[in-house]
Design a protein around this nucleic acid. Sequence first.
DNA 1: AGACCTTCTGAGAGCGCTCCCGCCTAATTC
DNA 2: GAATTAGGCGGGAGCGCTCTCAGAAGGTCT
Lengths: 364, 364
Amino acid sequence: MPANNTRSYPNSQPTPRSQNLEDIAAKAGVSRSTVSRVINNEPHVSEKTRHKVLAVIQAEGFTPNPAARALVTQRTQVIGVVIPQVPLILFEDAYYFPTLLQGISRVTNARDYSMLLWLGQADGDEERFYNRIISNRLMDGVIIASAGENYPLIDHFLRVQTPFVLVERPARRHDQNRISYVTIDNIAAAREAVTHLIRLGHTRIGTITGNLAIADGIDRLEGYKQALYAAHLPVDNRLIAVGNFTYHSGYEGAQKLLAQVGDHQSGKALDAIFVASDIMARGVVEALQEAGLNVPDDIALVSFDDLPTAQQVRPPLTSVHHPVEEKGAHAADILIDLIEADDPVPQQIMLPTELIIRQSCGEY
Amino acid sequence: MPANNTRSYPNSQPTPRSQNLEDIAAKAGVSRSTVSRVINNEPHVSEKTRHKVLAVIQAEGFTPNPAARALVTQRTQVIGVVIPQVPLILFEDAYYFPTLLQGISRVTNARDYSMLLWLGQADGDEERFYNRIISNRLMDGVIIASAGENYPLIDHFLRVQTPFVLVERPARRHDQNRISYVTIDNIAAAREAVTHLIRLGHTRIGTITGNLAIADGIDRLEGYKQALYAAHLPVDNRLIAVGNFTYHSGYEGAQKLLAQVGDHQSGKALDAIFVASDIMARGVVEALQEAGLNVPDDIALVSFDDLPTAQQVRPPLTSVHHPVEEKGAHAADILIDLIEADDPVPQQIMLPTELIIRQSCGEY
DNA sequence: AGACCTTCTGAGAGCGCTCCCGCCTAATTC
DNA sequence: GAATTAGGCGGGAGCGCTCTCAGAAGGTCT
């Protein structure tokens, strides 16, 4: 750290010290306290002095020093956003995390917060990543996106009572009610998607699941089963291929289903597939076409996420739409509510989804 | 703002005040100053006391209060990242901004900074957006991505001598040498791409330009022209369609070229197109196929950016690869250098590109 | 007229850190 | 052995703000 704080620039006078409350007070002919009151919109300031002070603030372009303010209030008006799995997410679904950030940003802008972004690195030095976040005490609260179940940060923030919100359901934690999160109703959405296939007359419906270590994967499979139960159709394990949300796992999953249920050209061993993500569905389409099968005539497809890619695939995919931007916005809103509450109560929100009908399910 | 700073949680004792230097000093049996010296890795501390203090810090999990530190040092170890055109960028090229952020994040992590993210909103209240950024004094410096030429923030940061780096070349500013930026050599890259088409025997080469209000658009067109000059081919204005980097403008641009140079089924009025972005190229492919033309047999295509989509389009696109992640990393590195320099000197960096050969140019 | 509010304002303390200054001790020099 | 020097350490000031407290000014009531 350099010895002199006032950095020197070539051919220019040294940067002038920026103004403080005292300077503004002197120019307005009042005290520091009064200026502070005006800035913080407190009562008990006469209209006359308020205007006088505001005029000076405006003229001087004064903004109070956030560090000094934070030092005394113990508040920074900054929230953190932690996205651990960036390389993975980015590779599979580039829209997700910018869209989420966009939603968060909309709310932080509106509620006068700013966001500190923490992206996990490809090098995978998670220990260091966590430590940097934990030791950064500049944040009033944190949004954690797609972290998985036992993410160490969760326990840390619970322990030190830092408000935080997860963007996902922490499926296997016993303390779900102590944790705030926003998610979608994966079960209901998957049930609706599969029910739609059933309504179209399909009876041999397979599924390619997402990663069954996280709630999105678990719940979409559960919804698939519930739809079959409700229609009194059997749940056949040979019709369930476990994937992990990647293109490749979709491709392989489709091949596995085809292999497991025998000859599809003739017998109607499999007539539709519910795929737990659009990215996987792209792989499924590829595999089916390679096998000489037509979508949707031979096998109908419904998938999940409704990414832009769903419209670009041939045939366009019927898919469950996901309000990602809204997830971000709600997460930020809940978090700021927690931060500002005298007596914070964890909140859990499930956002509605919508089944978008396109050609892959054969109804179009 | 609540009257009491120590927030109360239900069924728990009030949050204990977090420790400070004085507490650590007491536990280690030294003074506040010595602890500060240890934390800041200053000399003139005996190895013995240094170890003793470090042990206590470790045991207590102590981290110094960043607000207090910032208050006296005038440094926050925070850089800002401003991305004004998010909705536009996101719609056209979802990979760009997460990848850029990823690059920035890699460097900030390594150099012990954190990043404050500012995303432009769809509502387009730019005035308010700028003001929020300007009045946030929590940042030691700023990276501004894809802002366009006369972005008000540029002038502001120049005026108040806040270090900043642009991710793009500020094409039409006369004060380019006062401004730090990182970009690619668009002219050379475009020249190489077009020269490649010429080498493959094409002589009637059209182009669909990007947005000619920004450097990327201007320079890629310039590179196209330079390649023609060098090969002694005429620059025919009827072969130049002005686009703006969007899918739609690519689609329309292709139709315009076809219309302007007459009958393409028979006469060889147009045999190749250099498209200034992959996104536009997707539109071009669509338009050409609708016109019954085969890519690359009837019309060869070379485009720019090498997004993942370039591999997914049929035929896969020959395209100029763009080191977006590296752009972010370099921008962050330059910025932090500027921040930490006693005597900052603006830097301009041009990163190398690479022409990736795929099927759309007909060579494969 | 005095007592009592009520509204407005200013002074002082203190948040937790860094940095300057000066003291103490031990090592080095003549 | 006295004088000097250097390393190691502690105390004080102050960064710019908020918040409490007390005082000044003005109005209302007995």
